[in-house]
Design a protein around this nucleic acid. Structure first.
Lengths: 124, 124
DNA sequence: GAGCAGTATATGCACAGACAAATATTTCTC
DNA sequence: GAGAAATATTTGTCTGTGCATATACTGCTC
Protein backbone atom coordinates (compact mmCIF):
# COMPACT_ATOMS: atom_id res chain seq x y z
CA UNK A 1 0.00 0.00 0.00
CA UNK A 2 2.76 2.40 0.94
CA UNK A 3 4.46 1.63 -2.33
CA UNK A 4 1.36 2.25 -4.35
CA UNK A 5 0.72 5.61 -2.72
CA UNK A 6 4.32 6.57 -3.29
CA UNK A 7 4.13 5.66 -6.95
CA UNK A 8 0.96 7.66 -7.35
CA UNK A 9 2.58 10.66 -5.77
CA UNK A 10 5.54 10.59 -8.13
CA UNK A 11 3.16 10.08 -11.02
CA UNK A 12 1.08 13.04 -9.93
CA UNK A 13 4.17 15.20 -9.77
CA UNK A 14 5.23 14.12 -13.25
CA UNK A 15 1.80 15.06 -14.51
CA UNK A 16 2.08 18.47 -12.92
CA UNK A 17 5.48 18.91 -14.52
CA UNK A 18 4.22 17.81 -17.92
CA UNK A 19 1.26 20.13 -17.80
CA UNK A 20 3.36 23.03 -16.64
CA UNK A 21 5.90 22.51 -19.39
CA UNK A 22 3.24 22.15 -22.06
CA UNK A 23 1.18 25.20 -21.09
CA UNK A 24 4.26 27.31 -20.44
CA UNK A 25 5.68 26.53 -23.85
CA UNK A 26 2.42 27.30 -25.59
CA UNK A 27 2.07 30.58 -23.69
CA UNK A 28 5.60 31.63 -24.56
CA UNK A 29 4.95 30.94 -28.19
CA UNK A 30 1.61 32.77 -28.24
CA UNK A 31 2.82 35.81 -26.31
CA UNK A 32 5.98 36.17 -28.38
CA UNK A 33 3.79 37.48 -31.20
CA UNK A 34 2.85 40.35 -28.91
CA UNK A 35 6.45 41.00 -27.84
CA UNK A 36 5.72 39.78 -24.34
CA UNK A 37 7.25 37.08 -22.18
CA UNK A 38 5.16 35.07 -19.76
CA UNK A 39 6.57 36.94 -16.76
CA UNK A 40 5.99 40.29 -18.43
CA UNK A 41 2.38 39.36 -19.16
CA UNK A 42 1.79 38.27 -15.58
CA UNK A 43 3.18 41.46 -14.14
CA UNK A 44 1.10 43.58 -16.48
CA UNK A 45 -1.95 41.52 -15.55
CA UNK A 46 -1.31 42.09 -11.86
CA UNK A 47 -0.76 45.82 -12.37
CA UNK A 48 -3.91 46.21 -14.45
CA UNK A 49 -5.99 44.90 -11.56
CA UNK A 50 -4.42 47.39 -9.19
CA UNK A 51 -5.88 50.71 -8.19
CA UNK A 52 -4.74 54.05 -9.57
CA UNK A 53 -1.52 54.50 -7.68
CA UNK A 54 -0.06 51.20 -8.78
CA UNK A 55 1.68 48.63 -6.66
CA UNK A 56 4.87 48.46 -4.68
CA UNK A 57 7.62 46.31 -6.05
CA UNK A 58 7.72 44.33 -2.86
CA UNK A 59 4.04 43.41 -2.99
CA UNK A 60 4.31 42.69 -6.68
CA UNK A 61 7.12 40.24 -6.02
CA UNK A 62 4.99 38.60 -3.36
CA UNK A 63 2.07 38.05 -5.70
CA UNK A 64 4.21 36.81 -8.56
CA UNK A 65 6.13 33.57 -8.56
CA UNK A 66 9.36 35.49 -9.14
CA UNK A 67 12.20 36.40 -6.83
CA UNK A 68 12.63 40.03 -5.95
CA UNK A 69 15.62 40.45 -8.24
CA UNK A 70 13.90 38.76 -11.14
CA UNK A 71 10.87 41.00 -10.68
CA UNK A 72 13.07 44.09 -10.61
CA UNK A 73 14.48 43.13 -13.99
CA UNK A 74 11.09 42.27 -15.50
CA UNK A 75 9.77 45.68 -14.48
CA UNK A 76 12.96 47.23 -15.83
CA UNK A 77 12.30 45.66 -19.22
CA UNK A 78 8.66 46.74 -19.14
CA UNK A 79 9.71 50.28 -18.28
CA UNK A 80 12.18 50.32 -21.16
CA UNK A 81 9.34 49.32 -23.44
CA UNK A 82 7.14 52.11 -22.05
CA UNK A 83 4.56 49.68 -20.67
CA UNK A 84 5.18 50.49 -17.02
CA UNK A 85 6.31 53.57 -15.14
CA UNK A 86 8.19 53.55 -11.87
CA UNK A 87 7.53 56.37 -9.42
CA UNK A 88 8.98 56.96 -6.01
CA UNK A 89 6.65 56.75 -3.07
CA UNK A 90 6.41 60.01 -1.10
CA UNK A 91 5.65 58.50 2.31
CA UNK A 92 8.38 55.90 2.26
CA UNK A 93 11.21 56.86 0.00
CA UNK A 94 12.52 53.31 -0.08
CA UNK A 95 9.35 52.17 -1.77
CA UNK A 96 8.77 52.32 -5.50
CA UNK A 97 5.39 52.15 -7.16
CA UNK A 98 5.01 50.46 -10.50
CA UNK A 99 2.16 51.84 -12.61
CA UNK A 100 0.91 50.38 -15.84
CA UNK A 101 0.84 52.94 -18.65
CA UNK A 102 -1.87 53.35 -21.27
CA UNK A 103 0.45 51.71 -23.73
CA UNK A 104 0.95 48.86 -21.28
CA UNK A 105 -2.77 48.43 -20.87
CA UNK A 106 -3.19 48.39 -24.63
CA UNK A 107 -0.49 45.78 -25.07
CA UNK A 108 -2.03 43.63 -22.36
CA UNK A 109 -5.49 43.79 -23.88
CA UNK A 110 -4.07 43.00 -27.29
CA UNK A 111 -2.41 39.88 -25.92
CA UNK A 112 -5.18 38.75 -23.60
CA UNK A 113 -7.24 36.82 -26.18
CA UNK A 114 -4.23 34.80 -27.26
CA UNK A 115 -3.40 34.09 -23.63
CA UNK A 116 -6.93 33.01 -22.86
CA UNK A 117 -7.08 30.87 -26.00
CA UNK A 118 -3.99 28.93 -24.94
CA UNK A 119 -5.43 28.24 -21.49
CA UNK A 120 -8.70 27.09 -23.00
CA UNK A 121 -6.93 24.80 -25.41
CA UNK A 122 -4.45 23.39 -22.90
CA UNK A 123 -6.44 23.34 -19.68
CA UNK A 124 -10.08 23.32 -20.77
CA UNK B 1 -21.00 33.12 -18.11
CA UNK B 2 -18.15 33.44 -20.57
CA UNK B 3 -16.49 35.92 -18.24
CA UNK B 4 -16.82 33.61 -15.26
CA UNK B 5 -15.34 30.65 -17.12
CA UNK B 6 -12.50 32.83 -18.32
CA UNK B 7 -11.74 33.99 -14.81
CA UNK B 8 -11.75 30.42 -13.54
CA UNK B 9 -9.35 29.40 -16.24
CA UNK B 10 -6.84 32.11 -15.35
CA UNK B 11 -7.25 31.24 -11.68
CA UNK B 12 -6.63 27.57 -12.41
CA UNK B 13 -3.47 28.46 -14.26
CA UNK B 14 -2.26 30.62 -11.40
CA UNK B 15 -2.85 27.71 -9.04
CA UNK B 16 -0.84 25.42 -11.29
CA UNK B 17 1.94 27.98 -11.36
CA UNK B 18 1.89 28.43 -7.60
CA UNK B 19 1.98 24.73 -6.95
CA UNK B 20 4.75 24.19 -9.45
CA UNK B 21 6.87 26.97 -7.96
CA UNK B 22 6.30 25.78 -4.42
CA UNK B 23 7.08 22.10 -5.03
CA UNK B 24 9.98 22.89 -7.31
CA UNK B 25 11.59 25.14 -4.74
CA UNK B 26 11.14 22.59 -1.98
CA UNK B 27 12.59 19.83 -4.15
CA UNK B 28 15.60 21.94 -5.09
CA UNK B 29 16.25 22.66 -1.45
CA UNK B 30 15.85 19.04 -0.37
CA UNK B 31 17.94 17.58 -3.18
CA UNK B 32 20.73 20.11 -2.74
CA UNK B 33 21.73 18.25 0.40
CA UNK B 34 22.40 15.23 -1.78
CA UNK B 35 24.35 17.24 -4.37
CA UNK B 36 21.60 16.75 -6.92
CA UNK B 37 19.51 19.15 -8.94
CA UNK B 38 15.90 18.40 -9.83
CA UNK B 39 16.80 17.60 -13.44
CA UNK B 40 19.67 15.40 -12.37
CA UNK B 41 17.38 13.48 -10.03
CA UNK B 42 14.78 13.00 -12.71
CA UNK B 43 17.28 11.67 -15.20
CA UNK B 44 18.72 9.26 -12.66
CA UNK B 45 15.21 8.16 -11.81
CA UNK B 46 14.45 7.48 -15.46
CA UNK B 47 17.71 5.59 -15.96
CA UNK B 48 17.20 3.47 -12.87
CA UNK B 49 13.94 2.15 -14.31
CA UNK B 50 15.65 1.22 -17.55
CA UNK B 51 16.95 -2.20 -18.47
CA UNK B 52 20.60 -3.19 -18.37
CA UNK B 53 21.87 -1.51 -21.48
CA UNK B 54 20.60 1.93 -20.48
CA UNK B 55 18.75 4.39 -22.60
CA UNK B 56 19.48 6.42 -25.66
CA UNK B 57 19.92 10.13 -25.17
CA UNK B 58 17.18 10.79 -27.66
CA UNK B 59 14.61 8.69 -25.82
CA UNK B 60 15.72 10.12 -22.52
CA UNK B 61 15.10 13.63 -23.81
CA UNK B 62 11.66 12.57 -24.95
CA UNK B 63 10.67 11.26 -21.55
CA UNK B 64 12.05 14.25 -19.67
CA UNK B 65 10.66 17.74 -19.85
CA UNK B 66 14.01 19.02 -21.05
CA UNK B 67 15.22 20.07 -24.45
CA UNK B 68 17.72 17.87 -26.17
CA UNK B 69 20.60 20.23 -25.48
CA UNK B 70 19.67 20.66 -21.83
CA UNK B 71 19.56 16.89 -21.41
CA UNK B 72 22.96 16.52 -23.04
CA UNK B 73 24.40 18.88 -20.45
CA UNK B 74 22.61 17.25 -17.52
CA UNK B 75 24.03 13.88 -18.53
CA UNK B 76 27.42 15.54 -18.98
CA UNK B 77 27.31 16.77 -15.40
CA UNK B 78 26.15 13.38 -14.13
CA UNK B 79 28.98 11.71 -16.01
CA UNK B 80 31.50 14.11 -14.51
CA UNK B 81 30.21 13.14 -11.10
CA UNK B 82 30.55 9.46 -11.94
CA UNK B 83 26.82 8.81 -11.60
CA UNK B 84 26.24 7.97 -15.25
CA UNK B 85 28.34 6.46 -17.97
CA UNK B 86 27.98 7.15 -21.66
CA UNK B 87 28.73 4.32 -24.07
CA UNK B 88 28.56 4.32 -27.82
CA UNK B 89 26.02 2.08 -29.46
CA UNK B 90 27.53 -0.55 -31.70
CA UNK B 91 24.63 -0.89 -34.15
CA UNK B 92 24.13 2.78 -34.74
CA UNK B 93 27.26 4.76 -34.09
CA UNK B 94 25.32 8.00 -33.87
CA UNK B 95 23.48 6.73 -30.83
CA UNK B 96 24.78 7.01 -27.28
CA UNK B 97 23.54 4.99 -24.39
CA UNK B 98 23.44 6.47 -20.94
CA UNK B 99 23.84 3.96 -18.13
CA UNK B 100 23.43 4.64 -14.46
CA UNK B 101 26.46 3.53 -12.45
CA UNK B 102 26.40 1.82 -9.07
CA UNK B 103 27.42 5.12 -7.55
CA UNK B 104 24.55 6.80 -9.37
CA UNK B 105 22.10 4.23 -8.09
CA UNK B 106 23.40 4.73 -4.57
CA UNK B 107 23.07 8.49 -4.81
CA UNK B 108 19.55 8.15 -6.16
CA UNK B 109 18.46 5.82 -3.38
CA UNK B 110 20.03 8.10 -0.81
CA UNK B 111 18.02 11.04 -2.12
CA UNK B 112 14.77 9.24 -2.79
CA UNK B 113 13.31 9.50 0.75
CA UNK B 114 13.85 13.24 0.82
CA UNK B 115 12.26 13.54 -2.61
CA UNK B 116 9.28 11.48 -1.59
CA UNK B 117 8.91 13.40 1.67
CA UNK B 118 8.67 16.70 -0.20
CA UNK B 119 5.99 15.36 -2.52
CA UNK B 120 4.01 14.00 0.41
CA UNK B 121 4.25 17.28 2.27
CA UNK B 122 3.48 19.51 -0.71
CA UNK B 123 1.07 17.40 -2.73
CA UNK B 124 -0.44 14.97 -0.26
C1' DG C 1 29.00 3.52 -54.58
C1' DA C 2 28.29 8.69 -54.71
C1' DG C 3 25.55 11.95 -53.19
C1' DC C 4 21.70 13.47 -50.35
C1' DA C 5 18.00 13.68 -46.97
C1' DG C 6 17.27 12.24 -42.36
C1' DT C 7 18.63 11.23 -37.53
C1' DA C 8 21.55 11.53 -33.07
C1' DT C 9 24.39 14.16 -30.26
C1' DA C 10 27.21 18.05 -28.73
C1' DT C 11 28.37 22.95 -28.61
C1' DG C 12 28.23 28.35 -29.30
C1' DC C 13 25.56 31.80 -27.89
C1' DA C 14 22.23 34.57 -25.60
C1' DC C 15 19.02 35.22 -21.90
C1' DA C 16 16.18 34.76 -17.77
C1' DG C 17 16.39 33.74 -13.11
C1' DA C 18 18.37 32.91 -8.17
C1' DC C 19 21.49 34.25 -4.50
C1' DA C 20 24.28 37.41 -2.31
C1' DA C 21 25.92 41.95 -1.71
C1' DA C 22 25.45 46.99 -2.20
C1' DT C 23 22.71 51.12 -1.50
C1' DA C 24 19.18 53.89 0.42
C1' DT C 25 15.79 54.80 3.75
C1' DT C 26 12.97 53.95 7.82
C1' DT C 27 12.14 52.53 12.53
C1' DC C 28 13.51 51.18 16.91
C1' DT C 29 16.28 51.76 21.12
C1' DC C 30 19.17 53.79 24.22
C1' DG D 1 19.07 62.56 18.53
C1' DA D 2 22.78 58.98 17.36
C1' DG D 3 23.55 54.57 16.15
C1' DA D 4 21.70 49.90 15.19
C1' DA D 5 18.44 46.78 13.23
C1' DA D 6 15.09 46.24 9.77
C1' DT D 7 13.05 46.98 5.17
C1' DA D 8 12.89 48.09 -0.02
C1' DT D 9 15.14 47.98 -4.18
C1' DT D 10 18.86 47.34 -7.54
C1' DT D 11 22.96 45.20 -9.31
C1' DG D 12 27.06 41.75 -9.78
C1' DT D 13 27.76 37.20 -10.70
C1' DC D 14 26.89 32.48 -11.79
C1' DT D 15 24.10 28.72 -13.51
C1' DG D 16 20.74 26.27 -16.20
C1' DT D 17 18.05 26.33 -20.38
C1' DG D 18 16.54 26.91 -25.26
C1' DC D 19 17.51 27.83 -30.12
C1' DA D 20 20.32 27.48 -33.78
C1' DT D 21 24.24 25.34 -35.58
C1' DA D 22 28.03 22.04 -36.19
C1' DT D 23 29.48 17.31 -36.47
C1' DA D 24 28.97 12.51 -37.18
C1' DC D 25 26.66 8.73 -38.90
C1' DT D 26 22.82 6.11 -41.36
C1' DG D 27 19.85 4.83 -45.06
C1' DC D 28 17.82 5.94 -49.35
C1' DT D 29 18.02 6.96 -54.39
C1' DC D 30 20.02 7.23 -58.66
Amino acid sequence: MGTIAETDLVETWHQVLDRHTRVMGALEHALAEHQLGVSEYEVLEALADESEHGCRMHDLAGSSHLSQSALSRVVGRLENDGLVQRTMCANDRRGIYANITDQGRARLEAARPAHRAVLERELG
